[in-house]
Design a protein around this nucleic acid. Structure first.
Length: 885
RNA sequence: GCCCGGAUGGUGGAAUUGGUAGACACGUUGGACUUAAAAUCCAAUGGCCGUUUAGGCUGUGCGGGUUCAAGUCCCGCUCCGGGUACCA
């Protein structure tokens, strides 16, 4: 039987499409629902690469399996189609981005369909479709109309915000400002990262640590622009807590926790000597107040100029200017050597009323905490480094917990910094009444905070690294903001009935030089006049690409609804997403933003669950072999030839070493799924992607492996695809046992996303069945069922061959019959002092004393006992026997 | 620096979570079929020693430890990958 994979695969893909086999109905009467989601792709111009089908195949296997287990499965696909490349292409060629996008989506859809993935294509969505982004704009309006009630820890409608009387007394503008300052979405001046190559503002998250733009590698600079921002930090605590109950990889949760960056400590107020100015600092170590020997303000801090004394004015001004310039340079330079200048001012340390100098230095960041610190050089490494450089006093206030006496002495003398725990010294003051001497860190912090609060010098405080989310981009190809800026300086959002606000057609897509979006040139679209003749201008920025992907999982639930974002009943039925699979590169941004929006929607009563994604799994990256010379120079794949397992440069003949690297055009090692499907078929592609190794591991692509699984499918087809091999006689006991073991193994492995071992068990069974040569129809049909999630085309073909006229997509997953798995005997490995010596087949019922005597009296034991009596015999039933001599 | 992963044959990877290390597959070698090659099938395959028959030693990045028993647990390292970075 020839394995005509192309024929079979085309036939079944057409069948599934014609019969809408995988159409998903909102059958709310079935209590078993399963929502399984892929991270939808950005449809790039280069089409699918082999990394995409990895995650898609994994979810497809689970989806097909769950259907066979009787679940109502929601398994949709769509396109995250706003993005820069289509716009850049438009600039070069004048082609409208929507044309490019449609073409790319068509390619992606065709490629994905050829893999035989069981999506419900009737639910396909596209973030660039006005019917979709209408609701993205709608959510933005909700964010604009929401404030965060810190007492209730929840977002509420802006109409429910009580404006205090003292604000009301100040008039309409003050009220307006008060309200705007509370909105989750707000418009304000912001210092932003600007990429002059892409002519775009970047979120902090899009700037790499070396100060370059992650998209293009060009260095970014700072710029002040009016921007839309989202107050995600209000949700920091809930985003943090919410992680605890999610079935996500711990590493991803840790990354989110780090990103949110919660730290607990206190705010402390320092009065400036001879003024009534006050500096408030945030510190996690209020217990070290006695060691504070100076203070530092960020150069941008509003008090820096104010408290500088005349004689230091010039120096400080220069420093402020220099550091503003400096932040335009490579940011890593900042990290190297600390600089700063004295302001001439002194602050009063509240715990002992001592005067300490106030400096300004750019190692203190303006965006974190209060932008000012108390410096405790003896117990903070950054402060220590700074103090050493500028000769500031270093006062040790803690006897360190260390047995290194020499180190201890150096620390107490202030020659070394100690940041760990210890016992306080020099930490009391009779005037202020605080005394933490002889305490340790935890108690010291506690007691100091109490003292600060009792004396109104500070308060317990929690700080987060998470900043406001910069939410606008100077781009054409994104969701337009449903916002009008009026000539009187007010802002209004569109009414829901005016949505969607579509993009205007443009002739040119070039952005302006100074952060102006291309939309600023769309005259007709841009200018509006209200009923009273008031002139206004639409917002010309568009939303970032994150916007569309923040909530797409909700639209899949009810993609054609034009009355509301989705029906409440359907949301209640389908949410939350039961399994979400995608790349780890979205560990922080997409997943955090998405959770944030979900929580806002939850607070406003639009969704029924607090978290969108119950279980998350990250597939590993698919790498490829690459070649390099002895000096480490990379050699493109087409310049390499293999001889006797060694690799040589085709031209120079130099021997090369094989390494594993990311697929890249320059290395010429990119694998195109289309080629694999053409040569080996979609089932082989699917099987190989899963057989390579654990789903979450990074692993190199090796075409020899594809040949391996292709060979397996060929053998499956040869045996099971030939009715001559289907017998009416009974199956042997061992094949029935193997079959049931395989059912159990594959089912369990699918549940645990361990597809490589599931496939291995299918191979083991097939190898045994081939040895037998014949199987019963019942066995063959069962095998087709368990093969189905992995290689659905071949499985359907076999199923039809056995006389079934319906697709096996909804056949019941076979039940494991424990009867067939029972064992009476076990071949025990018998070891002496832990070393395996021989094997002994024994009844599993046999009592221990009988086993012992059989082992001792076995002739093979004589050599190892050497006439001695064993000290102990350990018998683990069904496992092992170990004789201790 | 800090936070996560990881290291097992020539290669990708298994190992019931403390109980026969190397499942399954690739590759290699030998054989069958063939005029020949490809394809297919059968067999062998961690390393070393021994071999007429056995068999033995050794082996999961390195060094210690716990245990009747360690790839798996504990302590101390090395190397590789990812994230993050003056966050007070």
């Amino acid at each position: 039987m020839e394995y005509k994979f192309r024929e079979i695969e085309k036939k079944w893909q057409k069948y599934w499409e014609d019969n809408k086999t995988f159409k998903c109905y909102d059958d709310t009467s079935n209590p078993k629902k399963y929502y399984i989601l892929d991270m939808f792709p950005y449809p790039s111009g280069s089409g699918l690469h082999v990394g995409h089908p990895e995650g898609y195949t994994a979810t497809d296997i689970v989806a097909r399996y769950k259907r066979m287990k009787g679940f109502n499965v929601l398994h949709p696909m769509g396109w995250d189609a706003f993005g820069l490349p289509a716009e850049q292409y438009a600039m070069q060629t004048g082609t409208h981005p929507s044309v490019t996008t449609r073409k790319n989506c068509d390619t992606f859809r065709r490629q994905i369909k050829e893999i035989g993935l069981s999506y419900d294509w009737d639910r396909e969505i596209n973030t660039t479709d006005p019917e979709y982004f209408k609701w993205t704009q709608w959510i933005f309006i909700q964010l604009y109309k929401t404030w965060y009630d810190e007492k209730a820890c929840k977002g509420r409608h802006i109409d429910e915000l009580q404006v205090p009387d003292y604000i009301r007394k100040e008039g309409k503008d003050a009220v307006e400002k008060y309200i705007n300052d509370k909105r989750l979405a707000y418009y304000d001046n912001a210092q932003v990262w600007w990429c002059s190559s892409c002519k775009i503002v970047c979120a902090n998250e899009e700037v790499l640590t070396d100060g370059t733009h992650e998209k293009c590698g060009h260095p970014v600079t700072k710029m002040n622009l009016k921007q839309w921002m989202l107050r995600i930090p209000h949700y920091a605590e809930r985003l943090l807590e919410g992680l605890d109950n999610l079935d996500w990889p711990e590493g991803i949760k840790d990354q989110q926790r780090n990103w949110i960056g919660k730290s607990t400590g206190a705010e402390v107020d320092f009065m400036i000597d001879n003024t009534d100015l006050k500096i408030t600092v945030f510190t996690t170590r209020p217990d070290t107040l006695f060691g504070a020997t100076y203070m530092v303000l960020a150069p941008e801090h509003e008090l820096t100029r104010q408290l500088t004394t005349p004689e230091f004015k010039n120096k400080v001004e220069k420093y402020i200017k220099d550091s503003a310039l400096k932040s335009d340079l490579d940011r890593t330079d900042l990290a190297k050597e600390k600089t700063g200048v004295f302001t001439g001012a002194y602050a009063i340390n509240p715990v002992n009323n001592k005067k300490i100098p106030v400096w300004t230095a750019d190692y203190v960041l303006t965006g974190y905490g209060t932008g000012a610190i108390m410096a405790v050089p003896a117990h903070d490494e950054r402060d220590f480094e700074f103090a050493e450089k500028y000769g500031l006093p270093i006062n040790c206030i803690m006897k360190p917990d260390t047995n290194d006496e020499e180190l201890k002495e150096r620390i107490v003398k202030g020659e070394e910094c100690w940041t760990e725990d210890g016992v306080y010294i020099n930490s009391s003051d009779t005037v202020t009444g605080i005394d933490i001497n002889n305490l340790k860190k935890d108690k010291g912090i506690e007691k100091t905070i109490k003292w600060l609060e009792d004396n109104k010098r500070g308060r317990a405080m929690v700080n987060y690294k998470l900043r406001d989310w910069l939410f606008s981009r100077q781009r054409y190809w994104g969701e337009p903001f449903p916002v009008i800026h009026w000539e009187d300086g007010t802002i209004s959002v569109l009414d829901e009935s005016e949505l969607p606000l579509e993009l205007p057609d443009m002739e040119k897509y070039e952005p302006g030089e100074n952060g102006e979006s291309p939309l600023a040139n769309a005259g007709n679209w841009l200018n509006v006049v209200d009923n009273n003749g008031r002139k206004g201008r639409r917002e010309t920025n568009t939303m970032p690409q994150w916007a569309g992907s923040c909530w797409y999982y909700l639209r899949f639930i009810d993609p054609e609804n034009n009355q509301s974002i989705f029906s409440k009943e359907k949301e209640k039925y389908w949410m939350p997403v039961d399994l979400y699979i995608g790349g780890a590169e979205h560990a922080v941004l997409h997943l955090l933003y998405s959770r944030f929006w979900h929580k806002v929607l939850y607070d406003l009563g639009h969704v029924t669950h607090n978290e969108p994604y119950l279980k998350l799994f990250n597939q590993g990256m698919i790498l490829a072999f690459a070649y390099e010379t002895k000096t480490g120079a990379k050699v493109p794949g087409d310049m390499v030839e293999e001889k006797d397992g060694k690799f040589f440069h085709k031209e120079s003949g130099e021997e090369l070493s094989q390494i594993v690297a990311k697929m890249s055009k320059s290395l010429k090692n990119v694998v195109n799924p289309d080629d694999i499907i053409e040569s080996y078929g979609a089932d082989s592609l699917r099987l190989y992607e899963m057989f390579m190794g654990p789903l979450d591991a990074s692993k190199p692509w090796d075409e020899k492996g594809v040949k391996g699984v292709f060979g397996f499918l060929t053998r499956v087809n040869r045996l099971f695809g030939n009715l001559d091999n289907i017998t009416d006689e009974k199956d042997d006991k061992d094949i029935i046992k193997a079959l049931h073991q395989t059912i159990m193994k594959t089912g369990g492995d699918i549940e645990n996303l361990r597809f490589n071992t599931a496939i291995s068990s299918l191979m083991i069974f097939t190898n045994l069945a081939i040895k037998k040569g014949k199987v019963t129809k019942e066995t063959a049909m069962t095998f087709a069922k368990i093969l189905n999630p992995f290689a659905p085309h071949l499985a359907e073909e076999l199923w039809q061959l056995y006389g079934n006229d319906k697709s096996l997509a909804y056949e019941q997953w076979p039940k494991v019959n424990e009867e067939f798995l029972k064992e009476d005997t076990f071949e025990y490995p018998v070891s002496f002092n832990g070393k395996l010596r021989f094997k002994l087949e024994l009844s599993l019922e046999m009592p221990n004393d009988e086993i012992e005597s059989l082992v001792i009296n076995d002739e093979r034991s004589g050599k190892w006992l050497a006439g001695k009596k064993p000290r102990k015999i350990i018998i683990v039933r069904g496992r092992i026997i170990n004789v201790v001599v």
